[in-house]
Nucleic acid binder design. Structure first.
Lengths: 353, 353
DNA sequence: ATGAAAGCGCTAACAT
DNA sequence: ATGTTAGCGCTTTCAT
């Protein structure tokens, strides 16, 4: 009775068939020099004949690394996160790594807890070699992550105290957005922010304030309303702003989804964009140019951000390159149809010139 | 000189400290009965003291499974795929699995090759326990996947010969969409399809034809144009259709992105939606209700689809449940502003009644 | 150039 | 209830 063939042949099965030691097979598989062409050929035939494939887990076990990276994000569906992830995944695979992605849930309670659970399962139990963390608050990972584990952070503001940070300079981006409105001649410019507990919202707010100040325009706190990134919240924020400050001619909206909500609310209130109100968003989300009017927005190359994160992480892993200083990524102003010069209103006539 | 403490304590380190065998520690860690409360307590203290965490890879090695699933999709950014993935990831984690997601590239050459490479690295090398495959062509995975590996397919049409298939009944969904237009009173209904090499486009086309036939309306082949799912292709397809059949009063557009392109093209051509032209899309993508007019569309619960796939896969893995017959998932007609009764045109007056 | 031995950290099967 | 003995399939180190 012939020995039952194991479902998956091992190095030793190949070795037995080729009449060499399993070690030699290992050398052939890993392209290690020091194997005669003849031996190599015999082994290769045996490998082919048996359909041998090295066992990735066994290899991880012996090598002490998994060739797997993980990316943690608040969710996997928002286009910005999804494209970060896709960018990272592309680079990872190009370098022989896989990318495991996990979301750590919606805001509020449980978030930290879920994040910690993820760190435990992925990092402490050494399931992955490195981590990319996308977090609305850089503090979260900084606080919860072990210091000696390879991590690249994707953040929304510069932080000199944080190594391996790839960040968007939201402050200057927002200043640029506000500057665009200022240049068009707007002076009463409102703002709709994301949740103010997020770095990104804070930074953009700071940039907005900074641009106003540079232009010598007094800041009206009542002109800023907080949203939650959703189109609905943009809709509601506009209504508040509209009642509060009918003279407002432009709004900086901290993301495109809310901007779309603003445009809808404006129309419902009889306000025409951009004739009566200029609206600028952030992200340049897919189809931003297909709304009515097409959205003027601050575009971010989110794929490139994901790629950069993965490149940095792999450099640390493969080349033993140590922690690197923060990398700043640029945004780009995309002018479309939702912004224009302010209309000259009857009551403005007296004050001009 | 004290023994240098290993960076990561092992079962044996804990055992030594607790004065028991490593096996007892293993029992405690895995909550296996048959350990005295006292012993357990001592071991738990040692675990805490050393900060021991079980090594996931070593465990995989010994258990012969990785508690990791993979999801393959054409890309990770299209909302439909991203939400499938997020749904699957949620379920996976609830059951103690991680989800590794990988994209197998854009269409055309290289696709099969990349897919094969993925199968090799993930399946043949046993890096994951099971696979979820989202493919525009069910044939691709059916052809390239080993028969004995746990796989759940997410597809666009029923296939009795394929086990573990979770599918959208695109044919009847398209018939429903077309039926909506028919009910409104449209008779010359155009169609813009996705790439016809994809199952989904074929099925929807079949559903469209079927609905027309049921209504006793002769099919005009010239009223169908092929797009590539992009808004731009929808824009262009409308132009072709408009020149070809100015009398057309409605279009079934096989996804929302193209539908948005159609609406834009219609407006640019002086055609008002829905007064002059009704447009129905598929997907109910995010913000579909924020376009102008809000999109009427066939909604699919893509999160639920992802969840279902993961549930099936885990059932096979954990409960040893064998292959199951195809699962059909329903879509829902969401009527918004882009569809309406056809206007009564001058030349229609004579023919009516 | 090749082989033998040891061990990665765990689980499983079998003692006691 | 606890301990002992074997591996899991590979890489690494050291012999030959």
């Amino acid at each position: 009775m012939p020995k039952t063939v194991a479902k998956h042949p091992t190095l030793r099965d190949v070795a037995a068939l080729a009449g060499v030691s399993h070690q030699t097979v290992s050398r052939v598989v890993n392209d290690v020099p020091g194997v005669t062409p003849e031996t190599r050929s015999v082994v290769e035939q045996a490998i082919a004949q048996l359909g041998f494939r090295p066992h990735a887990i066994a290899r991880s076990m012996a090598e002490g690394r998994t060739r797997t990276l993980a990316c943690l994000a608040p969710n996997l569906t928002d286009f910005t996160y999804a494209s970060n992830i896709e960018g990272a995944e592309t680079i990872a695979r190009q370098h022989g790594y896989f990318l495991l992605s996990a979301s750590y849930g919606t805001d509020g309670a449980g978030r930290d807890q879920q994040f910690e659970g993820l760190i435990d399962a992925l990092v402490e139990r050494r399931r992955v070699d490195g981590l990319i963390v996308i977090s609305p608050n850089v503090d979260l990972p900084v606080r919860l992550l072990p210091a000696d584990f390879p991590v690249v952070l994707m953040g929304g503001c510069p932080r000199v105290d944080v190594a391996n940070l790839v960040y968007l300079d939201n402050r200057s981006d927002a200043a640029l957005a506000t500057g665009h409105l200022l240049e068009l001649g707007h002076t009463r410019i409102g703002q709709i922010t994301g949740p103010l507990r997020e770095d990104c919202s804070q930074e953009r707010d700071a940039g907005y304030l900074q641009a106003l100040e540079t232009a010598g325009i007094a800041h009206e706190p009542g002109l800023t309303v907080q949203g939650d990134w959703s189109a609905t919240s943009g809709y509601e924020a506009f209504q508040i702003l509209f009642n509060r400050a009918p003279g407002m001619t432009a709004v900086v909206v901290q993301n495109d989804r809310m901007a779309v909500g603003v445009i809808r609310a404006a129309r419902d209130a009889g306000v025409t964009v951009p004739a009566d109100l200029s609206v600028i968003g952030f992200d340049d989300m897919p189809l931003a140019s297909y709304f009515d009017p097409p959205l003027t927005t601050m575009r971010q190359d989110t794929f490139a951000i994901g790629r950069t994160c993965a490149e940095r992480l792999i450099a640390i892993l493969d080349s033993g390159e140590p922690a690197h200083p923060p990398v700043r990524l640029a945004s780009e102003l995309v002018i479309r149809g939702s912004t224009a010069r302010p209309a000259i209103r009857p009551d403005d006539l007296g004050t001009s010139a």
